[in-house]
Design a protein around this nucleic acid. Sequence first.
DNA 1: CATGAATGAGTTTTCATTCAT
DNA 2: CATGAATGAAAACTCATTCAT
Lengths: 212, 212, 212, 212
Amino acid sequence: MKGTEGDVSERRNRIETAAIEVFSENGYAGASTREIARRARVAEGTIFRHFPTKKSLFIGVIRPFVERFFAPMALRPIEVILDQDFDSLEALVTQIYDDRIGLIGQQPELFRMLAQELFVQDELREMVFAIVQERLAPRFAVVCGKLQARGLLLRLPHGQVARIIVSNVAAYGLARHVLMPDADWDDAAERRTTIALLVRGLSPPAGEGSPR
Amino acid sequence: MKGTEGDVSERRNRIETAAIEVFSENGYAGASTREIARRARVAEGTIFRHFPTKKSLFIGVIRPFVERFFAPMALRPIEVILDQDFDSLEALVTQIYDDRIGLIGQQPELFRMLAQELFVQDELREMVFAIVQERLAPRFAVVCGKLQARGLLLRLPHGQVARIIVSNVAAYGLARHVLMPDADWDDAAERRTTIALLVRGLSPPAGEGSPR
Amino acid sequence: MKGTEGDVSERRNRIETAAIEVFSENGYAGASTREIARRARVAEGTIFRHFPTKKSLFIGVIRPFVERFFAPMALRPIEVILDQDFDSLEALVTQIYDDRIGLIGQQPELFRMLAQELFVQDELREMVFAIVQERLAPRFAVVCGKLQARGLLLRLPHGQVARIIVSNVAAYGLARHVLMPDADWDDAAERRTTIALLVRGLSPPAGEGSPR
Amino acid sequence: MKGTEGDVSERRNRIETAAIEVFSENGYAGASTREIARRARVAEGTIFRHFPTKKSLFIGVIRPFVERFFAPMALRPIEVILDQDFDSLEALVTQIYDDRIGLIGQQPELFRMLAQELFVQDELREMVFAIVQERLAPRFAVVCGKLQARGLLLRLPHGQVARIIVSNVAAYGLARHVLMPDADWDDAAERRTTIALLVRGLSPPAGEGSPR
DNA sequence: CATGAATGAGTTTTCATTCAT
DNA sequence: CATGAATGAAAACTCATTCAT
């Protein structure tokens, strides 16, 4: 029993791993199921036993990544982030930075797939929007509100704050792991710089929105 | 018969315009030359009179955009930017912001194409790198150097400064013109926020690198 | 474990019933063993335990129908028909009509399968020919001969008589149960008309072939 | 110009001819576009340039046959049949018989295709029904009415009369050209028999509905 | 040069059949 | 015997590219 189940999962895993590779290298439309089958060392038909269509295979591998990236709801990390009391903007930004960059570093191919297809596939875009709005936005709003109330964050719309943080983190992730993975990177320095930029850029100017 | 040349250019233009549309909507691999021919109202074969392969058509339409975006060499705007004496970081950032966002707003389809394919096509990526390194980096280094010498810019590697500015501008361009073009946008407010973020984030803390 | 045999027959029956449905709806080539397995609520492999190939399954379900339709040899009904002394053409035609139409009405799907595939499958056609020639023709010839000797039936080749009767009955069966099963049908009137047509059409004109 | 057009039609014709052969031999679902291409001596892609789908190829070849068979509207033959004054049932039946059997004899493969697929393809069945109801039924009703008024035809519903005639003619066509084309056939004798059967079977019994 | 029919390799997907459990 | 995952050949269809006109 164990053996059988193990085998089943194993083939499925091989297909998913191969799919991530091939999609990441060639984009969705440029990837062929034949190549995926070859790399997974299974027959082409086997793919379609596990995933009824090529698109469902794509969604099947990218969805968990998107959920971890944008809404680690039930999973501890972000919940902890958002529920814990942040006593500084820096703590918030640092948490977000480390979590996202960690995820990207673990699975750069999936991040690459996401970046590529987000502009082409309406389905994927809607998936991301839905997850962000339902699961991320509300909790993020709470944290922003608290910081703003304490004068630690500019009074910008929360969506804009989120976009600014995400885009700076994502831009580094893209450059670091997708566009120029072979360059010499001083990760610690980059981290310091980006966090500092965001903290200084998003803090209210001294003497402006300060409480008291 | 005499007017043939005019017709030639016109046909070529129609093909290029149609190609931008179709590539932008479907990505390079997802676009078909047949569809491009249909929209350009030319025969399928005609495309291959003007561009020997599908890829050369893609490069043919995107290269001018990339050059304008990353290295407006012979074109005035950026040359002016870089050669003129900037007496403040804000002036620099503002110039870059307005030029890039202006370009993206004029041709969002080309920007979209660029964003999509940059991760998939090695050829395109190398083209961008080459242009950046040969034509943009040296001139940008000069400007950065001047500002740093005057204590108006953090002493970061110039590449990092460029990346930070570009990624913030590009992130807004993507959100504004590609991902959510139909949302309500307060362009002026976004501009102010982004420029302020970059200026504050990239200025040396008061009393640190200040001259004198 | 004891009741295994019962289960075996039951599984086999479910497979046959499902096969009849699916073959009838889609034709032989258009039917898939997967769909048959689904409707029979058995695993795909189970079908091939009972029938080595898809074709053998087809033959397995249609053969009994063909035998009942064209040569109810050991079965009483037609034997009775042919061996009993018919004292009129009408009695013969009525018997044939009622038996065939009854059979078709009971299992219209099998009749439909037969009608569809008779033109495509050489194997099936040969099966029907063999059954007709070996088991039906000789007995039918006896009955025809008797009626002709008594001047109650035109002196046509027996094959032609058979064909005429069968085709009129089959044509009604097709229209009634296959082509337009949902139309309003006056079965009794149709029966009267068809039988009358055949009787009048196949009887010798008065005063022609009459004996004496 | 002539040459080009000729070539175009020629390839299309070769495809249609090959399609009729292959569909007729294997049925719609059992026919492969690859085999059709092989027999037409064209590339497989060429088929899809002329007919966007396999089904449209099927419809493309069978529709003209169905129209000629069931509704030779604008074409003379049946119009003449129906509009001319038939002074006897025999004249009507003979005309129908000779026209239909002539058509079947000319293109037995198309007749075979029609017979096979009529039971499987809803689309085809609806096409036939539409043609019969719109173009055949009204004209046939006129002729039947005239004959009935003169006491030359049983007072049956016109649909039933049509079905009886058509099924007897079609049954002969199937046996003669589809099921047993290689048997010894005495076409003249068959013709006489079938027409006589229909005439005697459909005429009112002497002294019944006679107009005096 | 423009055309568009033709090509054939390539695509995703289906299917009857096999076989380890 | 039953199961259902695996197979790979074959299906319908697409596509960039060529070439005769």
